[in-house]
Amino acid sequence: MHEISLVRNIFKTLEEAFPGQLGNISNISMRVGLLSNVQPILMQNAFAAVKQDEQDCRASLCIEVLPIIIYCVSCNKNTEVHNFKFFCSCGSPSRKIVQGEELLISRVEFFDSDMTRVRKQEDT
């Protein structure tokens, strides 16, 4: 249920950014934090299901799950959270989330990729 509405929003977001280009997208990369409650496998299924409604969309979906990282004020450093223990190695608790709540589209790839042109664009 929730995954379906998220996937619908992927398409909505992309349609806004690249009007009329949905059919030209070959891959969509997402970064989702461990706290976002998104299950990659459910997201993939929802994506496959919603894709059928979007005419000529041939894109694949690639999901990268990001671990939770918190910031400790006393040590001025970041620590990865394991087993949902929101404590720094110094023992101080912290809920300052540096990473882990993401729900982002990080990269969109297109068919018809004339790589030399892309490189040139990147160079300039």
């Binding site: 929003n9 950014a17 030209n24 982002l104 589209i105 969109v108 990729s113 790589m115 892309v118």
Partner: peptide, 14 residues
């Protein structure tokens, strides 16, 4: 029309 890869920074979902 975009070609190749487009990196999207901070595209929080709609």
């Amino acid at each position: 029309a975009p070609v190749g890869s487009v990196w999207c920074d901070n595209t929080t979902m709609n």
